Amino acid sequence: MLRTRMADSTGSLRPVPAVEKTARVLRALAEGGRPQGISELARALKVSKGTLRDILLTLDAHGFVIRDADTRFRLGPQLRALADASSPDLRGLAQPHLVSLMETFGETAILGVPHDGKLEIAARAEPTSGLHMSAPLGRRLPLDAGAHGKVLLHGEAIGYDDEQLFRGVRAVAAAVIDARGRRVAAVMVVGFKERVDLRTLRRIGERCATAAAAISRRIGARGVEEAVSA
């Protein structure tokens, strides 16, 4: 009987007013992009200043918002901690796609993540035999060059590198986009010029874009098909 009642109760939404107001406050602070005062928030949310003050001070006590010296409020570090705890494992999500790219084209596939102004190799799939590019985990590359730089910094849908970063090496990349529309990683394939002609590079680029779009959707990106492949 208890199980039946619980199943029935979870089938319909019963909003909790205090929780709903708190969620609206946090969303308003996030979308505002700057510290906001109680009066400004109260007008925007159409709630009383007293209620809003109680919500903000409670959130402040838990570190979810921070009250500045001028009594304006902004999002606090505990929200970042919660977000980090719920973040998907980008490397784990990317690995099957990297393996598929490697097996399809016989070249090294890489997930690169920007870190301290460089592109760090966070995951990779390398052929087990034959001549191929080596991609040591943790190796860092210039962020503003190569195929990855074109998609991460310059917003290109698919970035191509014909011996621009390394002599004799061709590469192609597509960006992984997160729920906030940020380009947070690059799916790449690299190979020696003698093994990868320009027509093949184009085919690989299309597959990289497909893989990057799939990963992007898994981490909450919306409209990613257009953003990646347009």
Rank of each mutant, 00 (worst) to 15 (best):
T10F: 10
A147H: 08
G32Y: 02
P127E: 10
L59H: 02
P96H: 13
L98V: 09
I38L: 09
G50H: 10
A209S: 10
R182Q: 15
G11I: 05
G63A: 00
D60H: 02
I219V: 13
S9E: 09
R222G: 14
D8H: 11
V224A: 13
L52Y: 01
G76E: 03
L2V: 14
G106K: 12
R24N: 08
L56I: 04
A175Y: 02
R124I: 11
L79P: 01
A174T: 08
E40N: 06
L26Q: 01
V151Y: 05
F166P: 00
G159C: 08
R180L: 15
E120D: 08
I55W: 00
M188A: 11
E206L: 15
E103S: 13
A42I: 03
V184D: 05
M188I: 14
G63W: 00
A227F: 02
R139N: 11
V172A: 04
E120H: 04
A173L: 04
M6V: 15
G33Y: 09
A83M: 12
L57H: 04
A185T: 06
R183Y: 10
A69Q: 07
A173S: 15
S134G: 12
R91F: 01
T58I: 01
P35Y: 05
G223V: 11
D84Y: 10
A174R: 04
A173K: 05
R53Y: 05
R53G: 01
H115K: 14
D8P: 00
V184I: 15
A213T: 13
L201Q: 09
M188G: 02
E156N: 11
P114G: 11
A211M: 06
F105M: 05
E206M: 14
A83P: 05
L2N: 12
I219N: 05
D197V: 10
L52P: 01
L98G: 09
R180E: 14
I204A: 06
G63I: 02
R202C: 08
I215L: 03
Q36R: 15
A147L: 07
M6W: 13
R43H: 12
V16M: 07
L52Q: 01
R27E: 13
T10M: 14
H132F: 10
A18C: 04
